[in-house]
């Protein structure tokens, strides 16, 4: 009689689909801006097909059964794409929760059966659908994490602008922590810009770097060394007192690097290297 229930569900597939879509469309959280009703119907129908095909009275109690692999795959694909499209967890969750409602509604309950069996059946369907919800959330979060990772990449890209402050002088303000991935981007951008602009001096301003430990110092030293290999000089500016303290306490040797307290000082030093003189215009009209 258990298989009767599943057969019943399989037979009523179209009705379930209609009910399911009705529930989804009725929900206030439906994102018609992100997904059309046709699309929703297509996705719902695909998942329901797979689920009803996979389910039988044996595996209904074994949620880990490989029979459900295809269902999980479809669901994971949907959840990830929803995460990327910007659906909220609630909007993503409704998709599966409402399926449960539609399934239970269409359950053929034999009136002659005792209550115990009916409750058991409902439990089984519940458990199966709850597991599908877990899959949904797991993949949804994974999708969000991917979005975050991509954004991190983008931030790294954006947050390293190379500025031409003077003919032959570049400045690169570094804001935020300098890890090895970031250093790579900084180095690449800086060296590329040195070649393109033909600049002989680069100023790395680290006043926006919260802390300098030996690893960060290592990255800075590498950047300076690479700049010199190209035939340009690299000055590090924006050394705050705390940074000077930690550098010395950690025993980091920066003696081969030109360091200046402020960007202004570094610029002055760069002017001197380029034999430029910046002066105030003398006011000829005496008072």
């Amino acid at each position: 009689m258990k298989s009767d229930i599943i057969k019943g569900l399989q037979k009523k597939k179209n009705q379930i689909l209609e009910d399911w879509i009705t529930i989804q469309v009725a929900d206030a959280g439906l994102r018609e801006d992100l997904m059309s009703n046709d699309e929703l119907r297509e996705q719902s129908s695909e998942l329901l097909d797979a689920l009803l095909k996979a389910i039988n009275d044996k595996n209904i109690i074994n949620i880990e059964s490989p029979d459900f692999e295809q269902v999980h795959e479809i669901l994971a694909g949907l959840s990830i794409s929803r995460a990327r499209q910007g659906f909220s967890p609630r909007e993503t969750g409704i998709f599966v929760y409402s399926l449960k409602e539609a399934l239970l509604k269409n359950l053929d309950i034999d009136q002659t059966e005792d209550v115990k069996t009916t409750v058991e059946t409902i439990f089984k369907i519940n458990r199966l659908l709850d597991n599908l919800s877990v899959v949904t959330f797991e993949t949804y979060i994974k999708g969000r994490e991917e979005v975050i990772l991509r954004q991190t990449d983008e931030i790294t890209e954006i947050s390293t602008p190379v500025i031409r402050v003077w003919e032959g002088i570049l400045a690169l303000p570094i804001i935020g922590t300098l890890d090895s991935a970031r250093t790579q981007v900084v180095m690449e951008n800086l060296l590329q810009e040195i070649v393109e602009s033909g600049s002989t001096i680069a100023i790395l301003d680290i006043s926006g770097v919260p802390a300098v430990d030996s690893l960060v110092a290592q990255h800075l030293i590498k950047t300076v060394a690479a700049t010199r290999l190209m035939g340009a000089e690299c000055i590090i500016s924006g050394i705050r007192p705390e940074i000077a303290q930690t550098v010395v306490h950690l025993g980091i040797d920066l003696s081969n690097i030109v360091t200046k307290a402020t960007l202004a000082n570094a610029l002055k030093y760069a002017f001197a290297l380029l034999k430029l003189d910046v002066r105030k215009i003398q006011n000829k009209v005496s008072q």
């Binding site: 180095m187 590329q192 690479a226 700049t227 290999l229 035939g231």
Partner: peptide, 25 residues
């Protein structure tokens, strides 16, 4: 002269300094 940026970055990572030569853009 004229070392490519990617070459400079790689040499530094490799730990190779060009001792005995000057460099220019």
């Amino acid at each position: 002269v004229g070392m490519q940026p990617a070459v400079a970055i790689t040499l530094i990572e490799l730990g190779l300094e060009l001792k005995g030569v000057h460099t220019a853009l």
